[in-house]
């Protein structure tokens, strides 16, 4: 019955609202621009205030369209975040691997998301600026299995101590890394976050982050939409009622009256 209503859609496509959080200057906008530019050559939009970008991510069974909210420039007030993370299905919490204080800030964001955002939100912790470290040219990001549960307090008072080398990392000349992979990845493990180290500059791991997020979004949440249902919520009602069936398309029909040019 419901089959008859579906027209020729090649692959199911779902929108995923993703918010980008993190301290100023960790490279949030660059990450997104790198991701978006990979498929979209022309991006000419300079970022002022906040930004809204979209990008598709094609998985074997479906297409995920990310709606990405970037809070660029307004971190100081932390006032855009509540608006963005309501109903968000995914969050990218970014820190800078050369700046320990940015991981502290990232942990605050993770805690806030866990307290306030939709249950079941997929959170990825991303250490950016890998190009400034000696690992810069290797693909990084595999979590280290032997995490010895080091308390993540190392950065508490280290914000301004710029030259302090991080203990377990080989601080070879030219390596600006101040946050070890192990520290961040064991924290991510504890909190159940996806974890990657990236370079927006070289592109290392950028697409991988978004693909991993796309794969981690539970199928049920795609069907019933953003952040719906309690974690386990198996739909009793969902069976005969795919969510798309309730959607009313405003763009299509109001084009004529609203001088809308390009909702094709």
């Amino acid at each position: 019955m419901s089959e008859s209503t579906s027209t020729n859609t090649p692959k199911p496509s779902s929108s995923v609202k993703l918010v980008l959080l993190g301290e100023a200057a960790v490279g949030k906008s660059s990450l997104v621009l790198r991701f978006v530019n990979n498929d979209f050559q022309e991006n000419k939009e300079p970022t002022i205030g906040a930004a809204f970008l979209t990008q598709k991510c094609s998985l074997p069974t479906r297409t995920i369209k990310f709606e990405i909210w970037d809070t660029a420039g307004q971190e100081r007030f932390a006032s855009l975040a509540p608006m963005y993370y309501r109903n968000a299905q995914a969050a990218l919490v970014v820190y800078d691997v050369t700046k320990p204080s940015s991981l502290t800030k990232a942990k605050h964001w993770v805690a806030e998301l866990q307290r306030q955002a939709s249950p079941g939100i997929v959170i990825a912790l991303v250490g950016n600026k890998l190009d400034l470290t000696n690992d810069g040219n290797e693909a990084s990001g595999e979590p280290q299995a032997d995490g010895e549960q080091q308390p993540p307090a190392a950065t508490a008072d280290g914000d301004d101590a710029a030259g302090e080398p991080q203990e377990e990392q080989d601080a070879t000349p030219g390596d600006a890394r101040k946050v070890s992979t192990r520290e961040a990845s064991s924290y991510a493990d504890e909190e159940g976050l996806l974890f990657f180290e990236t370079s927006a500059k070289t592109g290392v791991n950028v697409v991988e982050v978004f693909t991993a997020i796309a794969n981690a979004i539970p199928e049920s949440s795609l069907k019933s939409g953003r952040g719906a249902g309690a974690g386990t919520g198996q739909t009793t009602l969902g069976g005969g009622r795919p969510a798309e069936d309730s959607r009313v398309n405003l763009g299509d029909r109001s084009t004529a009256t609203a001088k809308e040019g390009c909702a094709c």
Binding site: I48, G49, A50, A51, F52, W69, T71, Q74, F77, S79, L80, P82, M83, Y84
Partner: peptide, 15 residues
């Protein structure tokens, strides 16, 4: 509406 203004450079402060 608020997002649109934020994208346009408006500054938001809650509390």
């Amino acid at each position: 509406g608020c997002r649109a203004l934020a994208v346009g450079g408006g500054v938001y402060v809650l509390n």
